[in-house]
């Protein structure tokens, strides 16, 4: 009874068997679904971009000035790290397509470490902001001279980079899960859907940062 009701996990390198959909269709469906999901992610961030644009227009001078308080060198370094990690993620997909599960493990591990490095650098940036007082709750932040416009800029900065960091974290979790599957030799030229979806998600995380970086760091 049960075996007809639920799908089975396929054997080593073979696609899972679903009761309701054939493997090739399942691959295309999964990819299509992922693209739709990425579209919602982009929309999610575009609302923030809209809010930023509105306040950047309203408080142009303050925003310009506040942007100089960010460390564009660290931001730039993070950009390079993410670009590189995207590269290895793309290579991992190729490795899966040529039946090289170890290649998937290696490349995704590099991407994972890059993600970790990104977060560490982000942490240093945040703590530097805290020391300088550009952080909610600090004395400077609560004082009268720290204008609402500044609060606005830094607030949006923390919301946008924080949400992005959350995506990096989620992406790292996904990578870890795929690494785990690849170690069990789950992928082959016949079945590499999870590798490709994970890589797609990681590219999105990268892409959003590519927009955030110039917007927040380089507007002065």
């Amino acid at each position: 009874m049960a075996e007809s009701v639920y799908s089975k996990v396929g054997g080593r390198g073979a696609p899972p068997v679903y009761h309701h959909i054939d493997p090739i269709n399942a691959y295309h469906a999964a990819k299509f679904g992922m693209w739709l999901f990425l579209a919602t992610e982009i929309l999610l961030f575009s609302v923030l971009f809209t809010a930023f644009a509105i306040y950047n227009w309203a408080y142009f001078e303050s925003f310009q000035h506040a942007a100089t308080k960010l460390d564009w060198k660290l931001g730039g370094l993070n950009t390079l790290i993410l670009l590189f990690s995207s590269c290895t993620a793309a290579i991992a997909v190729y490795k899966a397509q040529i039946n090289d599960n170890q290649g998937v493990v290696k490349n995704f591990t590099v991407s994972f470490i890059c993600g970790l490095a990104f977060l560490v650098i982000k942490y240093f940036e945040y703590s530097a902001k805290y020391r300088h007082g550009y952080f909610p709750g600090t004395e400077l932040w609560n004082s009268a001279e720290f204008s609402t416009q500044y609060k606005n800029y830094f607030g949006l900065y923390y919301v946008m980079t924080g949400l992005h960091a959350l995506h990096v974290l989620i992406g790292m979790g996904v990578l870890l899960w795929v690494i785990f599957l690849a170690r069990r030799e789950r992928f082959s030229e016949k079945y590499y859907t999870p590798v490709e979806l994970a890589a797609l998600y990681w590219h999105l995380v990268d892409l959003i940062w590519i927009f955030l970086f110039p917007l927040l760091y380089l507007i002065d």
Partner: peptide
């Protein structure tokens, strides 16, 4: 996003 901005306003004191 609206949620996120509400939280930012409440917790970070940012004027949105």
């Amino acid at each position: 996003i609206t949620l996120l901005l509400l939280i930012a306003e409440k917790v970070l004191g940012v004027g949105i």
